[in-house]
Design a protein around this nucleic acid. Structure first.
Length: 827
DNA sequence: CTTGTGTGGTAG
DNA sequence: ATCGCTACCACACAAG
């Protein structure tokens, strides 16, 4: 095809002659080649090799190597059996059936044979599109186990292991943590005190990172002409990354493989190679470190960093540095290409990087010498050549708000900045976004980005932790979802424990199929068009306790009233993170006061004010968006009726007795969770009434304490007898179904009467809290898990909250550490 | 005015 | 088949 010299321009009659003549010429060339280098090992003896389509290395080079190493080159493949091996980057769809039994290999096979000096098995090099290639991928991935669904226990881990976006997020978080760790220990790798804007900023970024690295791993050169894409497979899988050869055909990241293959039938799909991405990324950051050229290196992502030089440097030195970085990275990463934008601000560096790609660098200076190097440009040049969307933080939605009907890719920054004044931007986009864009138009960094340079400690510090899954979510019933939520919470709790932190606000976010979306979207197991809803929940106390968190999340799911079958996505977020404990003891909850040691010295007072709990405020349960409207919308669906359950005081046990055991069990389980949702509503509204009516609660209670007699529980007055009753009650219910809700209310009201009894009743209250905690500790490894969680929740949400409230009423500056489950170790 | 919740957007 | 994550900011709105 592309055979150096074009076919002679002759008539139809001449073709046969031409081909015969050409074949003789080729034969002669090959004989000559063999003579010239006869001493080479005959690796390909007996092989008849045909090369199909565009390859890398190209057809001529492959031919030379095959012939020189004893093989026969088959120029024209009349029948598949004419060749023993077919070399191709991929199998064209048209040939797939014809070549089904052929050995179709990638050029990498030839290279590998040459390297090892012998004929290698062809199967590992099977070209994309062959059955052998599919077989290799499938068997290499997982050992043919049954595919996991979202109902299976290992689903979350399995999904995350394969999700590119999960990996990107995880890597980013790890890099930030690593940066912070080093910065806090040594102040190394960051600027000490950045008063003035730094002199030079280099934004360094790999060209199509995944595609290049996966390509190299599959035997392609980093700048191959072969169009490559990284994806999981099939037609509705996403192109995670494609190389520039593929982009020339119009293929874009995020596009579906089916669309990409329409645009470019030659496209070669490569599997993800997450390990290799990590390895290359590590080398990348090592290069930046080893260069010792920067005052700071800030991680942006696995394949992207911002390097800062805080001293004046002439333009030529900047260029030399860019060239050096590119060369070093290529050398240390098997040929990967990074592009670089160098400028006096983050925005300009970013724009310069955009224009530098692919495979280049660009230095932006205020006044470049006219007619000088093309790698040096002015800010104005960047504004005239970059589009609105190239600006950081300007995505689809914002661009469309400004340019109705356009995506923001059609207009240059210079054009758009002419169209809008600062105040117009603020009117259209809001005060902060508008002002930010106005600043960006001037080449000034926005506040948020420059915070990274000015205060990296705050910028990189983690403020939340979350996990979400919006693929493969297909449930039939709420208990299945409960089990999933339990696992998701467990996953997050192990993460938060690794961080040695606790959370006091959690959020459940769900995606629910839009009413006009089909049950099954075009993407296999995808979420399709969804509405999203969220419910947040204040915990009152910071905790890492999976039982407490799980119960809240499950209750929150009820509040969102989404029918199980409509659920398409689930997210759980931990907000308001705090350091777990200053004493490094696992799973301690701080209680508000102590009978052991009141703190009085000024020194202790100081300490107490630092570790003091935030005041516990019972939040009003806020009505969620369109709650009743949505409930109405779903009330004729099979989902349980939330408001009905809210008002139902108890289950009729005799009725339940008539039902099959598993069904009755399911109903009881449902009921328990609705009771939780209900009780949190009742408590919060009662609190609202109390604080609303009595301005000064403490005075009122102290007054009452004068007229109250002995405080009883179940007609018992003796503290010891009450305690042994409660001990028995807890121990029994832990081994069975958990505490009865009515019983809990009675006990709570006893606790409340103790509180109203004034400060002298506090030891009794504290002693009850200890008793519950002790019982939980004793029974933790036996008994029913669900019951345990219920008692645990009661302790944290009801008892501890009351103790905390008392602290505000009666005592100040007193604290103890209340060790609830000391035997549980944290990693 | 401040505060908090729920929703939406963006980046890599 | 296919793996549509996650941290963080900003806004609208409601409630005090």
């Amino acid at each position: 095809m592309d055979d150096g010299h074009a076919a002679p321009n002759q008539g139809f009659d001449g073709y046969r002659e031409y081909f015969v003549g050409k074949r003789q010429l080729q034969k002669a060339q090959e004989d000559q080649l063999r003579e010239v280098c006869g001493a080479r090992p005959s690796i390909f003896r007996g092989c008849r090799v045909h090369v199909n389509g565009r390859t890398d290395p190209d057809r001529e080079e492959l031919r030379r190597e095959i012939v020189m190493h004893g093989g026969t080159f088959v120029h024209y493949l009349a029948r598949p059996s004419d060749a023993t091996h077919i070399v191709a980057e991929h199998v064209p769809t048209a040939k797939r059936r014809l070549w089904r039994v052929c050995k179709v290999v990638r050029p990498a096979w030839v290279l590998a044979c040459l390297r090892s000096g012998k004929l290698l098995p062809w199967q590992p090099y099977a070209a994309a599109g062959t059955e052998a290639a599919a077989g290799i991928v499938a068997s290499a991935g997982s050992p043919q186990g049954p595919r996991l669904t979202c109902k299976d226990p290992g689903f979350i881990e399995d999904f995350f292991a394969k999700s590119r976006l999960h990996h990107l997020s995880t890597w980013k978080a790890a890099l930030r943590e690593k940066f912070l760790d080093r910065y806090l220990r040594t102040n190394e790798g960051a600027l000490n005190d950045l008063r003035a804007p730094p002199a030079h900023i280099l934004h360094v970024d790999f060209d199509c990172f995944f595609a290049t690295v996966s390509g190299i791993k599959a035997g392609y050169q980093s700048k191959t002409e072969v169009p490559l894409a990284v994806c999981h497979g099939g037609s509705s899988s996403d192109v995670a990354s494609c190389n520039y050869a593929a982009r020339e055909c119009g293929i874009r990241n995020g596009m579906w493989v089916s669309k990409a293959q329409e645009l470019c039938p030659n496209l070669v799909c490569l599997p993800y190679t997450y390990d290799a991405y990590e390895t290359v990324s590590n080398s990348f950051y090592e290069v930046l470190e080893d260069l010792k050229a920067f005052d700071a290196v800030y991680p942006i992502s696995v394949d992207e960093a911002v390097c800062v030089i805080d001293r004046p440097l002439d333009t030529l030195s900047c260029q030399e540095l860019c060239i050096r970085i590119r060369a070093e990275v290529a050398e240390r990463t098997g040929g990967c290409v990074v592009s670089i934008g160098c400028a006096p601000s983050l925005v300009l560096a970013r724009l310069a990087l955009k224009r530098a790609k692919p495979d280049g660098y660009l230095v932006c200076v205020k006044e470049p010498i006219k007619g000088g190097d093309t790698q040096v440009v002015s800010p104005a040049h960047l504004f005239e050549t970059c589009t609105l969307r190239d600006l950081p933080g300007i995505g689809r939605a914002i661009a469309e708000k400004l340019l109705l009907g356009f995506t923001g890719h059609e207009h240059t920054i210079a054009q758009v900045s002419q169209l809008f004044s600062r105040s117009e931007l603020i009117t259209r986009l809001g005060s902060i976004t508008g002002a930010k864009l106005a600043d960006l138009f001037q080449g000034l960094d926005d506040v948020e980005s420059s915070r990274m340079l000015r205060n990296p400690r705050a910028y990189f510090a983690r403020k939340s932790l979350s996990a979400e899954i919006n693929w493969g979510i297909r449930f039939d019933s709420v208990p299945e979802i409960d089990a999933f939520l339990d696992r998701l919470v467990q996953y997050l709790v192990s993460k938060i424990n690794e961080l040695c932190m606790t959370t006091s606000q959690i959020v459940l976010k769900i995606a629910r199929r839009s009413s006009d979306a089909p049950i099954e979207p075009p993407k296999y197991l995808g979420m399709g068009d969804c509405d999203s809803f969220s419910k947040s929940c204040q915990l009152g106390l910071a905790t890492n306790n999976p039982g407490v968190i799980s119960a809240e999340i499950k209750a929150a799911f009820r509040m969102l009233s989404c029918p199980a079958k409509e659920l398409r996505g689930i997210a759980v977020q931990f907000l308001k993170l705090r350091e777990a404990s200053t004493s490094h003891m696992p799973r301690q909850l701080r209680l508000p006061f102590s009978t052991i040691k009141p703190l009085e010295t000024p020194k202790n007072r100081m300490k107490a004010s630092v570790t003091e709990l935030p005041p516990v405020v019972y939040k009003r349960a806020t009505p969620i968006k369109d709650f009743f409207e949505r409930h109405k919308r779903t009330s004729n669906s099979p989902s349980p009726d939330f408001t009905h359950m809210m008002s139902a005081p108890a289950l009729c046990e005799s009725f339940l007795g008539e039902l099959p055991t598993d069904l009755a069990e399911e109903i009881r389980r449902e009921h328990r969770i609705y009771q939780k949702a209900r009780s949190s509503y009742l408590q919060s509204s009662r609190k609202k009434v109390e604080t609303g009516v009595h301005g000064n609660t403490s005075e009122h209670i102290l007054e009452n304490s004068e007229i109250l007699g002995p405080i009883t529980f179940q007609n018992l007055t003796s503290q010891e007898k009450i305690k042994s009753l409660v001990r028995e009650w807890i121990s029994q219910t832990l081994r069975s179904d958990g505490p009865n809700h009515e019983d809990l209310s009675l006990f709570t009201s006893y606790l409340d009467r103790l509180i109203s009894g004034g400060p002298r009743r506090l030891p009794a209250l504290l002693s009850m809290a200890r008793l519950i905690s002790d019982q939980l500790r004793i029974h933790e490894s036996y008994g029913d898990k669900q019951s345990f969680h219920e008692w645990e929740e009661y302790l944290v949400r009801v008892v501890l909250v009351r103790l905390n409230r008392c602290k505000q009423l009666y005592t100040q500056n007193v604290e103890i550490l209340f060790d609830i489950y000391p035997q549980i170790d944290r990693p």
